[in-house]
């Protein structure tokens, strides 16, 4: 049984690719066979975040257009045995991606026994975003606690509920999960930032993860190592929790409260 999960948001720069890479790694580390696919045609970036940019020979569009086999295009991760990356093409032709082509690739991955297909959606609501979500069983909606991101993700929820295969067939629709990134418990406590509860209430979604704001995300992308693999980081722990919840485990939320300050720290500032 293969599960197709789209990582989407509407707004750009909120952490879709970072999240796709970390969730894919987290699932694969648990022994699942995972393919993570970059749907951002023309603006390939998942390869950089995964650290395999120099190993891209063939891409998603090459496979769809029959210029190579899927096996040739799947890049096997050097760290985790069961993880594979399919890069986006750098072509400017947006029509290179077709629904029929995507379905063929998915069918082949399913026949090959993959447990998960993670679709890294491009920003926006154009064709790439549409195709990334169309075949999905579940959606991880990545949101920053900020007005434009929340509003855009609500647009995406509307599309998930109408423009997907599951919605069209009427069999329960796509299961949606909320993943908050760049969360700052300190700013939430001072009333400067929307809280998890606020965003949850506005969008009406269950929370699959809250990832704290951290410099570790940039260091990880600089190095080409998905941030979940940096065991020292709270971001890694937050993504690990999110992966556990995706797999049906019940894990309490962490990193949502400001660490308690002592008496002197409160008086004199820290």
């Amino acid at each position: 049984m293969t599960e197709i999960i789209v990582v989407t948001s509407g707004k750009g720069g909120v952490g879709k690719t970072t999240t796709s890479a970390s969730i894919a790694c987290g699932l694969a580390r648990r022994g699942k066979r995972v393919a993570v696919i970059d749907f951002d045609i023309g603006l390939r970036n998942l390869d950089l975040i995964m650290g395999c940019e120099r190993r891209v020979v063939y891409d998603f569009v090459n496979v769809i257009q029959g210029e190579c086999t899927l096996k040739q295009a799947l890049i096997k991760d050097k760290r985790i045995e069961t993880l594979f990356v399919l890069a986006a093409s750098q072509t400017r032709d947006k029509d290179a991606l077709t629904s029929e082509g995507v379905r063929r690739v998915f069918d082949e991955l399913i026949a090959d026994g993959f447990d998960f297909i993670i679709c890294d959606s491009p920003a926006g609501i154009e064709k790439g975003a549409h195709l990334a979500m169309y075949f999905a069983d579940r959606a991880v909606v990545v949101v920053n606690p900020e007005v434009s991101s929340v509003r855009d993700s609500d647009r995406i929820l509307g599309l998930l509920a109408s423009k997907t295969k599951r919605a069209e067939e009427g069999n329960g629709g796509v299961r949606e999960h909320l993943l908050l990134t760049r969360y700052s418990p300190r700013r939430v406590s001072t009333g400067e930032m929307l809280s998890v509860a606020d965003v949850k209430e506005i969008l009406g979604l269950d929370v699959v993860g809250v990832v704290p704001e951290s410099t570790d995300v940039l260091s990880a992308s600089n190095a080409g190592v998905p941030v979940i693999l940096n065991e020292e980081s709270d971001v890694s722990r937050a993504y690990e929790d999110a992966v556990a919840r995706l797999m049906g485990e019940t894990v309490p939320l962490r990193f949502v409260d400001e660490p308690k300050k002592g008496f002197f720290a409160r008086i004199f500032g820290a």
């Binding site: 900020e146 007005v147 929340v150 509003r151 939430v188 009333g191 400067e192 930032m193 929307l194 809280s195 606020d198 506005i202």
Partner: peptide, 8 residues
């Protein structure tokens, strides 16, 4: 944040 929540 409460202004943001109300507007949203």
């Amino acid at each position: 944040a409460s202004v943001a929540k109300e507007r949203l």
